[in-house]
């Protein structure tokens, strides 16, 4: 932890605000819904920063904002010192491979009309296609027999592994994990978490993890931010947070962890 503190941050989010237009009753008066309301945090290379909070508090909106999928109202997102909000679309596209998301709904994460091998054809250089595909698949624990399959022919765990392999195929530095294991069943859940832990080590990855699943937080998180209604209540290293929570809301959360 201490050594990573001395490094340059990989991601720096400052005073982020995200709002969505809500059409109220036919919608002549445009209403706005504040989803993220002034969030700031810094992530250092190699660590796993985790955002925890109840459903609808704005966790996924932070991820969408970092990826440029929603408009940022105010605030900055610095990735390796570059402000993503000020990049031209072309330069942003070139930088995109460095930041890869993994979403909860693995059933929707793969194009249903694309074979697994064609997924990698899009991201890997031609002359290395076969060897690198094999390597990637084995690094996420998949056999290469599945490359001729369509997504619907795979199990949930296999799909999520393919999603991981696809993300890794562009050599990312930062993975944005939005509930990556929540909809998997328990045994697969554990396997994927173990996979994430080992990948983080072998590939020097940094994680931004979003989850309200307490066991994955316990296993992966270095620092934890507690989020409520679009704001962070507190951010602490996991151990400090467990020993010495500041908010009642956090205490509740820890009680739930220790019961497990």
């Amino acid at each position: 932890m201490n050594s990573s503190r001395q490094k340059q941050p990989i991601l720096e989010v400052n005073n982020l605000h995200v709002e969505y237009p809500v059409n109220f009753r036919g919608g002549f008066r445009r209403q706005k819904k504040q989803a993220v309301n002034g969030v700031s945090f810094t992530i250092f290379p190699g660590e796993c920063f985790t955002i925890v909070g109840e459903s609808g508090c704005g966790k996924s909106s932070i991820i969408d904002a970092i990826l440029g999928f929603v408009k940022i109202k105010t605030g900055t997102v610095l990735f390796e010192k570059q402000d993503l909000t000020k990049l031209t679309p072309k330069n942003f596209r070139k930088l995109r491979p460095k930041i890869q998301p993994v979403f909860q709904d693995y059933n929707q994460a793969l194009n249903p009309h694309q074979r697994i091998e064609d997924i990698f054809r899009e991201t890997l250089p031609k002359h290395l296609l076969e060897s690198q595909t094999d390597q990637l698949l084995s690094s996420v624990g998949l056999s290469k027999e599945i490359i001729r399959c369509f997504p619907h022919q795979l199990s949930g765990g296999q799909k999520q592994r393919v999603v991981l392999a696809r993300a890794l195929s562009v050599n990312p530095a930062l993975l944005l994990l939005d509930e990556p294991v929540t909809s998997l069943d328990m045994s697969v859940f554990v396997q994927i978490v173990e996979l994430l832990i080992s990948l983080r080590k072998t590939r020097n990855l940094t994680f931004l993890l979003v989850s309200h699943n307490l066991s994955i937080v316990h296993l992966l998180a270095d620092r934890v931010a507690i989020m409520k209604n679009g704001q962070f209540l507190e951010q602490q290293p996991l151990t400090t947070l467990l020993r010495n929570p500041k908010h009642d809301y956090t205490k509740n959360f820890i009680n739930q962890i220790t019961q497990l």
């Binding site: 995109r96 491979p97 998301p101 979403f103 929707q108 899009e122």
Partner: peptide, 20 residues
């Protein structure tokens, strides 16, 4: 999600539109 995912990979717009 799958369109978000391929956009995040950095694919070009025409490719996303016509292939995906």
């Amino acid at each position: 999600t799958y369109i978000k995912s391929v956009r995040a990979l950095g694919l070009r717009t025409p490719r996303i539109v016509f292939i995906h």
